[in-house]
């Protein structure tokens, strides 16, 4: 009987081809790994205790939200193919589409794989005009396919050209999923309705026991409609469910060539526990000894 059982099996049953589909999809960026998030309690703090809210937390959450919405809009193209089986399979490649998308453009996603490195691109085919790649990336598999690192690029200018919108620019996202979430987002030559192109950069790192968000932005800090905008460099550091510290360096605007530093420490719900600045422009609040981080840390990734 054992011999019979040993030799009786013929044929093959396997889901490998579908598991390969899943590997290809795992190499694509997704919302859970390529977006910015503050500790939940801290984020919730923006909606409660207005008088106690730390202004720099408020600013950072707003910035993160803006970055997220942009990234998510980009990833929407990728997410569309997650719900569909590939249109074509080869041993080391997949193709989805082409599908009709917005603006009389049809798009197809092409993926290839070699030695754990996945290359992918979304190729647009407009009703009028030349075919072009609007979104592309490279992913290096880690211990799992999804747990690796990579880069993707969104060409907003090409999309604007097809759809006749005014926003242009190039967004590059470097990510590392091997431990927590590590993002480096650079927006180059961003322009809306003829405005002068600007460059933005954001660095975000989040593990189970710390968060670190760095960015530099140009803003009307006094909100007085002045053309003299300030350059604000901010670094937020926090420990989930305990609190954190935000430090900002402001030049330009009303400060001219002077650099004004502004620091705030906050508790587990974003409640302000200490505030200080380099020129005593703001009311001193609390005791610096209550800060989770005693010293300021400079923006060092941008």
């Amino acid at each position: 009987m054992p011999l019979l059982l040993l030799f009786a099996c013929t044929g093959e049953m396997s889901n490998q081809i579908f598991l390969d589909d899943a590997d290809f999809l795992a190499a694509l960026p997704d919302e859970s790994r390529q977006t910015l998030g503050f500790d939940a309690d801290t984020t919730d703090a923006t909606a409660r205790g207005l008088g106690d809210r730390a202004d720099l937390v408020d600013l950072s959450v707003g910035i993160a939200s803006g970055v997220n919405s942009f990234v998510l809009r980009t990833l929407g193209v990728v997410d569309a193919v997650r719900e569909l089986p590939p249109s074509e399979r080869t041993e080391d490649g997949r193709r989805w589409g082409p599908y009709e998308v917005d603006c009389d453009v049809s798009a197809a996603m092409l993926m290839s794989r070699e030695n754990g490195v996945y290359g992918w691109s979304v190729l647009g085919h407009p009703a009028a005009g030349e075919d072009a790649t609007v979104l592309y990336g490279t992913h290096y598999a880690g211990t799992t396919v999804a747990g690796g690192d990579g880069t993707f690029v969104w060409d907003q200018g090409r999309w604007a050209e097809w759809c006749g919108t005014s926003e242009t620019g190039l967004m590059t996202v470097d990510y590392d999923n091997r431990e927590g979430v590590d993002l480096f987002v650079v927006v180059e030559d961003w322009s809306t309705e003829g405005e002068a192109p600007t460059d933005w950069a954001y660095a975000y790192r989040r593990t189970s026991d710390l968060g670190d968000f760095q960015y530099r932005t140009v803003t009307d800090l006094e909100a007085d409609g002045s053309d003299a905008l300030a350059t604000v460099s901010v670094r937020d550091r926090w420990v989930p469910r305990q609190g954190g510290r935000s430090d900002a360096w402001v030049t330009g605007g009303g400060f001219g060539a002077t650099t004004w530093t502004w620091s705030q420490c906050w508790g587990p719900t974003g409640r302000l526990v200490w505030q200080g600045d380099s020129q005593d422009l703001l009311e001193a609040v609390g005791d610096a000894a209550d800060c989770l981080y005693s010293d300021a840390a400079e923006v060092d990734r941008l």
């Binding site: 099996c9 013929t10 044929g11 399979r89």
Partner: peptide, 11 residues
């Protein structure tokens, strides 16, 4: 699905 049929025979 564009995937070949799969068969198995055993005891």
């Amino acid at each position: 699905a564009g995937v070949s049929d799969q068969e198995l025979f055993t005891v």
